[in-house]
Design a protein around this nucleic acid. Sequence first.
DNA 1: GCCAACGTTGGC
DNA 2: GCCAACGTTGGC
Length: 154
Amino acid sequence: MAIQYWLMKSEPSAYSISDLKRDKKTYWDGVRNYQARNFMRDDMKCGDLVLFYHSNAKPPGIVGLAKVCQEGYPDQSAFDPESKYFDPKSNPNHPTWIHVDIQFVRQFKRIISLNDIKKNIKLSSMKVVQKGSRLSVQPVLAKEFEEILCMADA
DNA sequence: GCCAACGTTGGC
DNA sequence: GCCAACGTTGGC
């Protein structure tokens, strides 16, 4: 199976690419959306590459690259009443929420802003540019991924 | 801070 | 199963 490509959103005030660079790897906890969960549970494989996107940032955009280093396993934060991600409906015997681990690959020299992505006709199919798209874990086509890397290195 | 788009909840 | 109300996301 060829590697697949993804885009994952994070608010930099919550967890930024700099945090990932410092930590080297992290568990992607707190996703509470079934579609995003399903991608992490069913489709994301070790070695898959991830575009790291800063949402609610100035400007919003893709800031770097990460790699899946641990496939789906239960999100412990759902069981922790102290966590802001606590979900009383998630049963430890049948966890509702599954996440992956990702590791830092590199930070881009420049932000590929949402505006840059919108201006690039080759990227018009990306979910992230579509109005109202709120999916925080989304698949990216190989050709889209390659175009993003070209822009990052340009 | 505003608000449109979306997902979830819960009454019926 | 429908759908109105509500909460959240996230660009602007």
